[in-house]
Design a protein around this nucleic acid. Structure first.
Length: 566
RNA sequence: GACCUGGUAGCUCAGUUGGUAGAGCACCUCCCUUUUAAGGAGGUGGUCCUGGGUUCGAGCCCCAGCCCGGUCACCA
């Protein structure tokens, strides 16, 4: 392994600590008595009191016999004051002069015991009386500095490094940690909301023999003992409905779903969806519940229902407008496509500049019209309702119009946040809808749904009228934390593998030149170059490589340039 | 999958018509007992993403590839 100079120095410091009898990785519990957040927020209560803290040393200002350092624990950052005569003495200043000043580094994890006070400049600090090494850090952290105006200098901002080394990102970028704390607040808020109503949180299979409940390309895997294919779930809808058949009134699950499709700043191959099913309800009830839920989430997360998302101020205050999809298309394109036949609709699409072909059905074209001409315009939360039947094979037919379904999508900031239905519970209708999907599949739609016979069997036993919803959690977190990229709300977003570290062994050219050198030990540079037969560039690279590995060196004497073995 | 940016020290970034690779911070040595982007003096540190090519000479030009990002396509 090739170590940088900084890493070598830290490893030497590690050894020197051990030589001094200090275990750089002690096993004992380190009992703290306070968190940094407690001290900085309630200084009056802590002033003059002794505290024990533990955390990572983020910076150091050494001024002779006194030093200041910044300590960061899980709750925040604060300054510690380290004085030679407090942690050691004039007779034996080792702890200060050697351990603290020389052998500790930025990034090391330490424990301190000392008194809370305020410096002349007014900064709350801990005057350290005892210092304990808790973990030596062998790699240098990025150095991020914040000036008096709060301006950040040399921010650790390279996305590739930030995502590949999220642990570093979390250490040096406090706002990143905030995002993930909010993420958990959001899911906690939802659980609280559902649990209070007596809804049951459940778990259903991730490995499914038939990837149902959505239309998407699945990841495929194989079970060895059963010798059968299995799919990572693309949705959990069909399993949750089976539980409603089984007699639960309301079930919900925070589900990791997996879709084998393109990645961009709003799509990751694995993502989280909260799905909820409530018996004896319909989609109107679900809209009421959804707006109530989202308002609560916004307030629990940000303290207000008003949320800044990019350029837009979005209000999650209930209620939200409800607009039928055909109405939305009429408003934004001027065409009333209700009841249109496929041919007419194709004409409308062409007039508004949407490319269509013969394979596209009514549902697909309406979806295109809405997606292209309307969706991005709904910034404030809006329920778009009553989607065409063809697009919604799991949704109950609309109570007043057989061409439509009782479905809504919730649009926020021009994007889909949730998708909900009055669930189709007529097993005969459901079978026909699946068969329609099979026809689409035969036409070449590789995302049409499979028929899940067991699911239909479950419906045949009878499922109560039920409303269900799926809320995209990653997208919700993006909204609530004002992040434009899904990678900012996932701890470990999917990345291509890092390049493997290059080997330090000699390459073929270097070996060949070394073979020549071994025989003669010293040779004129020009002769060696011509014997090697290498191009100028290759020659240059090869010689640089050999001198780097300290195998050969070039000497310059009165007789000219020579190469010799080291 | 297509196109466009970028990839240089541990980090953030410069790098002139192609001519010995730079800065700030970090690090090392020294000074400094309430500083705070601490300060002062000196110093170390580089497969310039990889592989080819052009050239006397490539971080820079050409070709191929890798990785991040962006736009589009795909995506209920």
């Amino acid at each position: 392994m090739q170590l940088s100079a900084l890493e070598i120095i830290r490893r030497e410091s590690l050894q020197k600590l051990r030589d001094l009898g200090i275990n750089p990785y002690p096993a004992e519990e380190f009992k703290t008595t306070a968190t940094i957040q407690q001290i900085t927020s309630k200084f009056d209560a802590f002033e003059g009191k002794e505290v024990v803290l533990a955390g990572r040393m983020m910076s150091r200002r050494i001024m002779g016999k006194a030093s200041f350092a910044e300590l960061k624990d899980a709750s925040g950052r604060m300054q510690i004051y380290v004085n030679r005569d407090e942690i050691s003495s004039e007779e034996d200043p080792t702890m200060y002069n050697t351990v603290f000043k020389k052998l500790l580094d930025m990034g090391d994890i330490i424990g301190v015991k000392g008194e809370v006070f305020k410096t002349n400049v007014g900064e709350v600090s801990v005057k350290v009386k005892e210092l304990t090494v808790l973990s030596k850090s062998l790699r240098p952290l990025p150095v991020v500095k914040t000036d008096a105006d709060g301006k950040v200098h040399d921010a650790f901002a390279d996305n590739e490094l930030r995502y590949r080394r999220r642990y570093v990102d979390l250490i040096v970028n406090d706002h990143v940690k905030e995002t993930f704390i909010k993420r958990t607040k959001i899911t906690n808020s939802m659980r609280e909301f559902f649990n209070k109503r007596g809804y049951l949180e459940v778990e259903t299979p991730v490995l499914q023999p038939i990837p149902g409940g959505a239309a998407a390309r699945p990841f495929m895997t194989h079970h060895n003992a059963l010798d059968m294919p299995l799919y990572l779930r693309i949705a959990n809808e069909l399993y949750l409905k089976r539980l409603i058949v089984g007699g639960f009134d309301a079930v919900y699950e925070f589900a990791k779903d997996f879709r084998n499709e393109g990645m961009d700043r709003t799509h990751n191959p694995e993502f989280t969806v909260m799905e909820l099913y409530v018996a004896y309800k319909d989609y109107n009830w679900m809209m009421d519940m959804t707006e109530e839920l989202l308002e609560k989430i916004a307030i629990d997360t940000n303290g207000t229902s008003e949320v800044q998302i990019g350029e837009n101020q979005v209000s999650f205050k209930a209620p939200y407008p409800r607009v039928p999809i055909l109405e939305a298309i009429k408003i934004h394109t001027g065409y009333d496509v209700a009841g249109m036949k496929e041919v007419e609709l194709r004409g409308v699409c062409r007039k508004v500049g949407i490319e269509v072909d013969e394979t596209m059905g009514i549902g697909k074209m309406i979806d295109e019209l809405f997606g292209e001409k309307c969706e991005h315009l709904y910034i404030q939360p809006t329920f778009i309702t009553d989607y065409p039947k063809e697009m919604s094979p799991l949704t109950k037919e609309h109570r007043t119009n057989p061409d439509l379904t009782e479905r809504f999508e919730l649009m926020v900031n021009g994007k889909e946040l949730a998708n909900a239905y009055s669930e189709l519970n007529d097993p005969i209708d459901q079978r026909e809808r699946f068969e329609d999907q099979m026809k689409l599949s035969a036409k070449g739609d590789d995302e049409a749904m499979f028929i899940d016979q067991d699911f239909i069997r479950a419906l045949e036993y009878g499922m109560p009228p039920t409303s269900g919803i799926g809320i995209g959690i990653d997208r919700l977190v993006m909204f609530m934390t004002n992040n434009a990229s899904i990678q900012e709300v996932l701890f470990f977003p999917q990345m291509k593998p890092e390049k493997v570290a290059p080997t330090v062994e000699l390459n073929d050219d270097e070996k060949a030149v070394f073979e020549i050198l071994k025989k003669v030990e010293k040779i004129a540079l020009a002769d060696l170059k011509s014997q090697s037969g290498l191009s100028n560039k290759k020659w240059d690279k090869t010689m640089k490589g050999l001198s780097k590995h300290k195998i050969a060196k070039v000497t310059n004497s009165d007789e000219g340039l020579f190469v010799e073995i080291v």
